[in-house]
Amino acid sequence: MRNKICLNPENYRELTGEFDEGDFFEIFWGRMNIIIDDKDFFGEDSIIQEFKEEPINNDIHGLTLPMFPFIYNLFVNYKKIGVRDLILQEGPMGEGLVIKTNGDNIILAIEVYNGESGETKWYDGEKLISMNDLSKNDINSMPTSVFKQGLIEGMNNFFVNFFNHYPELRDNELINRYYNNFTKLKG
C-alpha cells in the first residue's frame, strides 16, 4: 500500500520589510491532500462544499488549514496516532482531520461543520456520514505505519519547498524550532 500526504501552501507570499512571525503563521494557509494507492481521498469532496453551502470548485481538493499550526498539531499528536482516536483541527474553517484507531490500521475522515445549520458530518473519502457511521472503505483505511511514514514524507517535502522559497528564514528561531521538532520526529 502506498500513501502520500501532500501539504501544499495556497501560495507563497513575498516577504517585504520585517518578518512578523505572528502574522505569518496566521496567514500562511494551504491544503492537505491524501493519496492512497493513486486514489485521491478528496476526489468526491464537492459534497463537502455542498454540505457547507459553498460554491463548488472541482479544481481544488483537500483540507484547507493554516499550515504551521497544523504541522505543530501533528508533532504533538504523532505518537498518539494508532494509539487513540484523534481529531486534528486548526483555524476557523470548521474542518478537521479525523484519525480513528482500528487495530494496526487507522481510518481517516474529515470533520465538516456547516456554520449555517450548526450540523457536523464526517467525510469518509466517498460520502458524508454521521460520526457514528465511520467504517473502513477502499479509500480511508491503511496500516498506521504507512500513514505515519506518509506524514513524515509530506512534512519533509513541505519544509524542503518552504526553505527553497524562503531561504532567508533558515535562521529564524521559531521556524527552526518547528523544523528541529520535525527532524526529531523523523529520527
Rank of each mutant, 00 (worst) to 15 (best):
E26C: 02
I48R: 01
V76C: 04
R177Q: 15
I129Y: 00
L88C: 12
N180E: 14
K80I: 06
N164S: 09
D37Y: 04
D124Q: 06
Y72T: 10
N11D: 12
T16L: 12
P69L: 03
I34Y: 10
N157P: 03
E14M: 07
R177A: 11
N11G: 03
I5N: 11
I106N: 11
L128V: 08
E126H: 06
F75V: 05
K4Q: 14
D171V: 09
N58P: 04
K79C: 03
T16Y: 14
H61K: 14
K4M: 15
S117F: 14
L128A: 06
E95F: 07
V160Y: 12
P143R: 06
F68L: 08
V83D: 03
F158H: 05
M131I: 04
I99N: 03
G125H: 07
G103F: 14
N132K: 10
E95P: 02
L97R: 01
I106G: 06
N172H: 15
E18I: 07
N114T: 07
L134C: 02
N105W: 02
F147D: 14
K4V: 12
N8G: 10
E26T: 11
V146H: 10
V160W: 00
F68C: 00
P92M: 13
H165L: 00
I48L: 08
K121W: 00
T144W: 08
E95R: 14
F28P: 11
S117A: 11
N176H: 12
P92I: 12
K100P: 03
I47D: 00
N140P: 05
V146Q: 15
H61A: 11
N180L: 11
R31N: 15
M131E: 14
L134E: 00
K148V: 05
Y178Q: 06
F41Q: 04
I81D: 05
E126N: 08
I87W: 00
G17E: 10
N176E: 13
R13W: 09
I129C: 02
N8C: 11
D38V: 04
Y12C: 03
T16A: 13
I56V: 13
L88T: 05
S141N: 05
I107R: 09
R2T: 07
K79Q: 13
F41L: 03
S130N: 11
D40K: 10
T64G: 10
I36A: 09
N33S: 13
F19P: 03
S145V: 11
N57W: 12
T64Q: 11
F75S: 10
P69W: 03
W29A: 01
D104I: 09
F41K: 05
F162N: 12
D23F: 06
G94A: 08
I47P: 02
K52D: 05
M32W: 00
N73D: 15
T144R: 14
D38P: 02
D40R: 12
V112R: 00
F159A: 00
G103V: 08
F28I: 13
I36D: 04
S135W: 06
I34C: 07
K4D: 10
N140I: 07
K80C: 06
N114V: 05
T64L: 15
D45K: 02
D20S: 08
F158Y: 09
I47S: 00
N132P: 03
K121M: 13
L169H: 03
L185S: 13
